[in-house]
Design a protein around this nucleic acid. Structure first.
Lengths: 181, 181
DNA sequence: TAATAATACGATGTATACTGATGAATTATG
DNA sequence: CATAATTCATCAGTATACATCGTATTATTA
């Protein structure tokens, strides 16, 4: 791990490989770009509402599950508890969400959409669908569901990593195989 | 004024639709989750280096294009100028990257990998490949290239949104050549 | 050459996303 | 019932990601 003389060790082969496997063909790069693109389209389509994709995810989940607690909400939407609190804070500052302590478990904060929040959810639905259509438009229609199915398989198959928190909290208890302690 | 009687207006149809098109089947949600999962796998596989996916993207691009300026670098890696400056700052604080003003255009900052940076690039290559393999593992091997090809089509077909600032600043033509078909 | 336009950077602010630490409330256990 | 373990929220810190503004530099044009 020290400085190398200016000779060309075998390592330089790796560099050649890197040039041959450029960013543009690496899964991670492609997924990141795709995520950027979707966000940009969504924000453009929904700019009149000033709601981001994650905010909309929380809003629709709250619409279908009024009074859900933050931990469950994060699990549904796929963001961790800290981020749930942040996003809900912004939404409640805008009067779209109301939060209160659970009466049955005073550790928990439960959340509801306000009337304004429900209206935004309704009004944004069409914009969200248009964003999705634009996003998928480059793909031939018969491939779209196959594409989404493959994405679903990747998420499912890698589900151990899908919820950062879920993995972290259970670090103590590796469920299953003899967990050492 | 806002209070509604407990009747069911037409709006509730939209709510039913939203329940029928849950988060778990929306492209935006799926792509966001997939991106999270890839980041988690990459970080786990490369944790010994403390390099994030974006940092690694910059590092490999610098390896193949020493002395590139920040704007071009951002275009290659798919991040905007501000973010390039942020990430390069962190990398240069760690001694992996060196920056200087271009002699031909003193507005520009050009960047190089240091020796340490080149070593990190070499050493991380295997970890990056393992992260990619783990990420794609749930997909049947014969589907993997098809999946990546579809992602590529979505990026290509939505390329107007792929680079936030590129579209905004230079409204005129960009690229051209044979790159977009 | 002087004025103007275009470009590149930096600074600032917002939003997402996660880690780790801390404290409070609840549950489990002795 | 008291203690321990767990769970939840919050805070602080780090990192991406982008928009906007201001400044410096370069290029263009009158």
């Amino acid at each position: 791990m020290k400085k190398q003389p200016p000779t060309k060790p075998a390592k330089s082969e790796a560099k050649v490989e890197m040039a041959r496997v450029p960013l543009a063909s690496r899964p991670g790069y492609l997924i990141r770009r795709l995520h950027q693109i979707h966000s940009a389209i969504f924000l453009e389509e929904c700019q009149q509402f000033g709601i981001t994709p994650v905010q909309y995810g929380l809003i629709t989940t709250l619409l279908n599950n009024p009074g859900i607690d933050q931990v469950t909400l994060g699990g549904e939407v796929g963001i961790d508890r800290t981020n749930v609190a942040d996003v809900l804070n912004r939404l409640s500052e805008r009067g779209l969400v109301r939060r209160e302590r659970s009466k049955t478990d005073r550790r928990s904060m439960i959340a509801y959409l306000t009337k304004d929040g429900e209206e935004v959810a309704d009004q944004m639905y069409g914009s969200m669908l248009r964003a999705q259509e634009r996003f998928l438009a480059p793909l031939r229609p018969e491939f779209r569901s196959a594409f989404l199915a493959m994405v679903g398989e990747l998420i499912e198959g890698n589900s151990k990593y899908s919820l950062p928190d879920a993995g972290a909290t259970s670090t103590r208890r590796r469920s299953g195989a003899g967990s050492d302690e």
